[in-house]
Nucleic acid binder design. Structure first.
Lengths: 234, 234
DNA sequence: CGATCCCCTGTGACTTTTCACAGCTGGCGG
DNA sequence: CCGCCAGCTGTGAAAAGTCACAGGGGATCG
């Protein structure tokens, strides 16, 4: 049903030029699916990369106390090869005292349930992509695990691309919105169509294209698209 | 079981620095899983990118005759959201004469069965990742569709990273006039200006741009310019 | 010679884009 | 609190592009 959300995420990831836009895109995606937060976790032996929209305090806790080693969700992820839903209650079985404390703290920050998608990556790396919510919330991710796996892989690849290689210095800097609109224009869509696609008003699309044109010093959209393609901005 | 093959593929993809190594890695992967060939197909409207290890003759056939439009495997991929196995026998039901001929030709080249993994990408693009074999061959991909989706996404992302210039199925040949008009459009001129520049009527400029659009299968001039620039036609 | 094809041009209706002029909102620093 | 700015939306008119219908002129070929 909300395949629109998936499409928009993929579009945004493709046009993202930096880890910031990637996070923004995933955050938007999580919201559209009814989740409050998302979390990305990459574990490669002792090396852990992570970013999320969890409350700051909880993020700090998680990293400082090395919670990745006891997080029952992570443990479940190691065991299962596919995505799964979890909730406070589900997990509260056969836990170590540490884990019970862990769950308590998570609950204090409002984290009650979610769905996690584990995927494997190169060099023994394990990725855990999680969407979490403060209340029980049915979701469509667990219903289509292949889609979930695909999305998680997408997020991983695009996140790592920008975590590893910092943004290359380009003369002009287009905003994600501008790139998005320009990309669709380059695919022959009309403003009205793009407005529908990105879920906004025609006037706003026009607005972004106008700004893109100004930045690129182009006389019209066709000119802007040509310049952007040549400069590999889209 | 052969999770080793998956790991190796992911490692190779991550370290590949060019489309050559990517293809080599996927080929190796296919071999380890007992398949003779692999095929990657990216469809975005009329824009088709593909590469495979199929016999040269068959590759040429497939592209020249635009077989992507009748390939029953592709049709099945559009319908289903998950990976599936296929074989000559499976497919030989309710087919058009074209498709029967298609299967015949494929069989002539030894292609008998395989497994295909469809995944969606940004901007309405559909990716079909296929492993094929000359004989019936059980496989582990269909048994774990999430893993398959993840792998296909990986291949897609890394392939696209190195496929700098998309190769359109039909190599369009623009006339000098068409190139001229299109080039000026890419420079932001409007039709009336171009008419003055090349010393002709506006209607004629429109005429050439119209033909260029038809050849490139573009919905409007902006689209045509984007395609032409990407294909280095202008 | 007629048939045919390609290049070019005209006309009028219609759609889409461009532009100028405005206004609303929320966040942020003073 | 207030001003400022960035992002977004509205309106209406002018400019540009798109489309359908049509036709002239030159070259080539059977």
């Amino acid at each position: 049903m909300p395949s629109r959300a998936f499409d928009q995420l993929r579009d945004s990831l493709e046009t993202a030029r930096g880890i910031g836009p990637v996070k923004a895109a995933v955050k938007e995606f999580a919201g559209q699916l009814g989740f409050d937060w998302f979390a990305y976790l990459s574990v490669c032996g002792p090396e852990i990369d992570t970013f999320s929209t969890y409350p700051r305090a909880w993020q700090g806790n998680y990293i400082n106390k090395n919670y990745a080693t006891i997080d029952p969700v992570v443990q479940e992820a190691r065991r299962s090869e596919r995505c799964f839903a979890w909730s406070e209650r589900d997990l509260a079985r056969a836990l170590s005292p540490d884990q019970v404390r862990f769950l308590g703290e998570a609950g204090d920050h409002g984290i009650a349930s979610g769905v996690s998608v584990p995927v494997s990556a190169g060099f023994g790396r394990t990725v855990l992509f999680t969407l979490a919510s403060s209340n029980q919330c049915d979701n469509c991710l667990v219903e289509c695990p292949f889609l979930a796996a695909s999305i998680a892989s997408h997020v991983d690849v695009y996140a790592r691309r920008w975590m590893l290689e910092p943004i290359t210095a380009v003369t002009v800097k287009l905003s994600p919105r501008e790139r998005l609109c320009l990309s669709w224009m380059a695919k022959g869509k009309r403003m009205s169509e793009i407005a529908q696609i990105v879920g906004t008003k025609v006037r706003t699309v026009e607005y972004h294209l106008q700004n893109a044109r100004r930045k690129l010093d182009a006389t019209n959209v066709t000119h802007a698209v040509a310049l952007a393609v040549r400069q590999q901005l889209i």
